[in-house]
Every structure is written in structure tokens, then in C-alpha cells.
């Protein structure tokens, strides 16, 4: 039972990550590979505020969210100058830079040792599951509202034909920055939940392969489909657990996971680039 609760919490956290990344990749057509950076900023921000400054979780997560959003304004402004391939590459670069900050700003982040003893807002795992699911549900409602609003329609228009929507007087760059910052904030929320749930974080959780993993979730589920992202999170969180039951040693199992994600991306690109229930093809 405890094990199922654990998986449920992970599904909730990755669900939030998937939903927020889908706002960028699926709805706006911005293939960002730097989501783990904001996930990490949220986790580190919340963890440090709780451990070092003694803030409560309820104050720490909004602050962490703001921190990530601030960082995303800077990163988003630089990224807004690029398109397609170069956008991917530059976002790739920001993930490496932020990861290297986590790893090397030892006076703040304690480097590879990580931060331990992060408090939880609720003691039992079951209550934490309910908390995560509540946040996940609110995120889903928010994303649904956002993508169905006129704002969301502009995003899709940017994705489909940026030039055309500019002719109608919409400033695509503003919209792209706004959605980038929104997605970063939601990723930071997931990070705060993760830090508080595991009670320990270190830089290795927030590297490039985590960004690729989140990308795999939304591509599997389907781009521009919010329920698809949730389904993707369920599938990809549960998948490695099956590998665990097959009985690989833990180090090999971790690599098998990566292998399967990579394979999944390749197979999807070859045979079903829109994912399971996607409404947009890359």
C-alpha cells in the first residue's frame, strides 16, 4: 500500500511537470529541453527556504515559484531570439548551466552532497498523496482554462503560423515569454513538492536526462492534449517499476529505464510522432 502511495505521489509530480511542459511544446510549439532546470530551481528554492530560513512549506513553495519565474524571465528573453533547432540547442544549454550552478555553487546548494532534512507539510504519506493530487488537479484545471481561453488560442495560432498572427497585431514574443514563465512556475511547484516529499535533494535529479524524461512523458501522451500528459506520466512512472520486478540489480535497472525512454522516443518519432492521443505533430 505504501508503495502504491509512493507511486501515486510520483505520478502527481510528473503529471504537473508534463502538463506544464505541454503548454510550451504542445500548445505553443516551443521545444524546450530545460524543464528540469525550473523543476530544480523550485526544489532548491523551497528546500533552502525551509531548511536554512525555517519557512513553512506554505510560504516556501510560492516563493520558490516566484524565484523560478524570475529566472525564467531571463532565460526566456534570451531564448525568444531563437527558433526551431537553435531554440532546442540553447534551451539544452540553459539546463547544463543551471545544473552546473546546483553542482558548483557549493556555499548555497552544498554541491553534490545535496540538501537533507527538508520538512514536510503533512506527516503521513497518504496525506501527502492527497496534497499532491490536489495540486495536480488544480494545475490541470488551470491549464485547461488557460488553453481554452483566448490566450490559449493565440498560443496555438503562434504554433501554427507565427507570421500570420503577428499580422493581426498580436505580439508573439510577449505571448511566448508569458507561457514560458507560467510553465516554469508550475515546474517549480512540482519541484517544491518533490523536495518536500523525498526530504532530500541533490543536483543529479535535475540534469538534462530529467528534461528528456519529461519530454518523453508528453510526447508519449500526446502533444497539445492535457489528459495525454497525465496518461504519459502514469505510463512512464509505472514502466520502470515493472522493470524492477523483472529483477535487475538497481544500478542496471536505472540504466534500463533510460534505455526504455530513449527507445520510446525513437519509436514514437518513427511511427507515431503525435503520441497516443496528441493533437499536434512536431
Amino acid at each position: 500500500m505504501e508503495y502504491l502511495i509512493h507511486l501515486g505521489i510520483l505520478v502527481g509530480i510528473y503529471g504537473i511537470l508534463g502538463l506544464s511542459l505541454n503548454l510550451l511544446v504542445g500548445f505553443t510549439g516551443l521545444l524546450s529541453v530545460t524543464h528540469a532546470a525550473f523543476y530544480g530551481l523550485g526544489a532548491y528554492g523551497a528546500a533552502l527556504l525551509m531548511v536554512e530560513a525555517g519557512w513553512s512549506f506554505w510560504l516556501a513553495w510560492p516563493a520558490a515559484l516566484l524565484l523560478a519565474m524570475l529566472a525564467s524571465v531571463l532565460i526566456g528573453l534570451v531564448l525568444s531570439r531563437f527558433r526551431a533547432d537553435y531554440y532546442v540547442l540553447a534551451s539544452f544549454g540553459f539546463n547544463v548551466i543551471v545544473f552546473s550552478l546546483f553542482l558548483n555553487l557549493q556555499s548555497v546548494t552544498r554541491g553534490p552532497l545535496g540538501i537533507s532534512g527538508i520538512p514536510r507539510p503533512v506527516a503521513s504519506n497518504l496525506s501527502f498523496l492527497l496534497l499532491t493530487l490536489a495540486f495536480g488537479f488544480l494545475t490541470y484545471l488551470f491549464c485547461r482554462w488557460l488553453t481554452r481561453s483566448s490566450f490559449g488560442r493565440v498560443l496555438k495560432a503562434i504554433r501554427d503560423d507565427e507570421g500570420a498572427i503577428q499580422v493581426f497585431g498580436y505580439r508573439a514574443a510577449h505571448y511566448k515569454l508569458l507561457i514560458f514563465v507560467t510553465a516554469a512556475g508550475l515546474a517549480a511547484l512540482a519541484g517544491a513538492l518533490y523536495a518536500s516529499y523525498i526530504t532530500f535533494i541533490d543536483p543529479s535529479t535535475f540534469n538534462l536526462s530529467e528534461s528528456i524524461f519529461i519530454l518523453a512523458i508528453i510526447i508519449l501522451g500526446g502533444l497539445a492534449n492535457l489528459r495525454g500528459s497525465l496518461a504519459g506520466a502514469v505510463c512512464l512512472v509505472l514502466l520502470p517499476e515493472i522493470l524492477r520486478f523483472v529483477g535487475f540489480p538497481s544500478e542496471v535497472a536505472a540504466q534500463m529505464r533510460q534505455l526504455v525512454y530513449g527507445l520510446l522516443l525513437v519509436v514514437l518519432m518513427l511511427h507515431r510522432p503525435q503520441g497516443l492521443v496528441g493533437e499536434y505533430k512536431l
Partner: peptide, 9 residues
């Protein structure tokens, strides 16, 4: 994305 997959594999 396919190349990212290949790299991971």
C-alpha cells in the same frame, strides 16, 4: 527528438 532518444539509448 529522435536524436535525443538515440543519445539516451
Amino acid at each position: 527528438v529522435a536524436a535525443l532518444g538515440v543519445m539516451t539509448i
